[in-house]
Amino acid sequence: MPELISTIVAKYNYWIYITLMMIGLYAMIAKNNLVKKIVGMSIFQTAIILFYVSIGAKRGATIPILEHGHGSSHITHAVDYINPLPHVLMLTAIVVAVATLGVALALAVKVYNQYNTLEEDEILTQMREK
């Protein structure tokens, strides 16, 4: 049992992202309200963004900025700096997530204007009545 706890604690960032992802997935599958589903989708995307951000971290490292980097000849050690690449990738992914959220909300507005509700079961009954 202590071993299990120590493996969980050692990789806690992965457990957190998996938990968040499952919460998001649950909301997308089980919720009836279209906006709640969109919230779930956002949580899902954020979980993956956090996962990427966490893999760039290093113990005892600092932000990846070289002071007086130009012209100096002393060697820099990669171990001293956190990996900036996953963070840069996530800037793009955040933009994508925002755009997706915008499109999703726009579509939800269109659906609302049509059926006057965002509850999926009510929309389905309205469709069947037609």
Binding site: L25, M28, L34, K37, M41, F44, Q45, I48, F51, Y52, I55, P86, A93, T100, V103, A104, L107, A108, K110, V111, Q114, I123
Partner: peptide, 24 residues
């Protein structure tokens, strides 16, 4: 169409996120 596209958006986003996770 908007409702169908919204459902596609949910599934499509999950698909793209899974791909992104695999790349991670």
């Amino acid at each position: 169409a908007p409702l169908a596209a919204l459902n596609y958006l949910y599934m499509g986003t999950i698909g793209a996120c899974f791909y992104l996770l695999g790349v991670g």
